[in-house]
Amino acid sequence: MHADIHLQLHHLNAAQLHRAAEVLAPAVTPAPLRVQLGWRLVELGLRLATPADRPIAFAA
Score class of each variant (00 low, 15 high):
Leu12Met: 03
Ala49Asn: 02
Gly38Ile: 02
Leu46His: 03
Leu44Arg: 03
Met1Tyr: 03
Gly45Tyr: 01
Pro51Arg: 10
Pro26Gln: 08
Arg47Ile: 02
Ala52Gln: 11
Gln16Cys: 13
Ala3Glu: 15
Pro51Trp: 08
Arg19Tyr: 04
Ala59Glu: 11
Ala57Val: 05
Gly45Asn: 03
Glu43Ile: 00
His18Met: 10
Asn13Gly: 10
Phe58Arg: 13
Leu37Ser: 00
Asp4Ile: 06
Ala20Asp: 15
Ala31Lys: 08
Leu44Glu: 05
Asp4Gln: 10
Ala14Ile: 04
Ile5Gly: 03
Ala60Gln: 13
Gly45His: 04
Ala21Ser: 11
Leu41His: 01
Val42Met: 03
His11Ile: 09
Arg34Cys: 05
His11Leu: 07
Val28Arg: 12
Phe58Leu: 13
Glu22Arg: 15
Pro32Leu: 00
Val35Thr: 14
His6Cys: 06
Gln8Ala: 14
Trp39Asp: 05
Val23Gly: 02
Ile5Ser: 08
Ala52Lys: 08
Gly45Ala: 09
Ala14Gln: 12
Ala49Glu: 07
Ala14Ser: 11
Val35Asn: 00
Asp53Thr: 06
Ala25Val: 05
Val23Leu: 13
Ala3Met: 11
Pro32Gln: 04
Pro32Ser: 09
Val28Leu: 15
Leu24Tyr: 04
Thr29Asn: 07
Leu41Pro: 00
Met1Leu: 10
Leu7Trp: 09
Leu44Ile: 04
Leu12Gly: 03
His10Leu: 12
Ala59Phe: 10
Ala49Ser: 06
Ala14Phe: 02
Asp53Val: 01
Ala57Glu: 09
Ala59Ile: 06
Phe58Ala: 13
Leu9Trp: 05
Glu22Ala: 13
Arg54Gly: 02
Arg40Phe: 04
Asp53Arg: 02
Ala14Cys: 00
Trp39Pro: 03
Pro26Ala: 05
Ala31Met: 07
Gln8Glu: 14
Ala57Met: 06
Pro26Thr: 07
Gly45Pro: 00
Leu17Ala: 13
Ala14Glu: 11
Leu17Gln: 15
Glu22Leu: 15
Pro30Thr: 07
Pro55Val: 09
Val23Asn: 00
His18Ala: 15
Leu24His: 10
Pro32Glu: 03
Val42Glu: 05
Ala27Lys: 15
His10Glu: 08
Ala27His: 09
Ala21Asp: 13
Glu43Val: 01
Ala20Lys: 10
Ala57Gly: 06
Arg47Phe: 06
Val42Ser: 01
Ala60Val: 11
Arg54Cys: 14
Val42Arg: 04
Arg47Val: 07
Pro32Val: 00
Val23Phe: 09
Leu33Ile: 12
Pro30Glu: 08
His2Asn: 14
Leu37Cys: 11
Val28Ala: 14
Thr29Leu: 13
Arg34Thr: 13
Leu37Ile: 08
Val28Pro: 08
Gln16Trp: 11
Phe58Cys: 12
Glu43Gln: 03
His6Arg: 12
Leu48Asn: 02
Leu37His: 07
Leu7Asn: 09
Pro55Met: 08
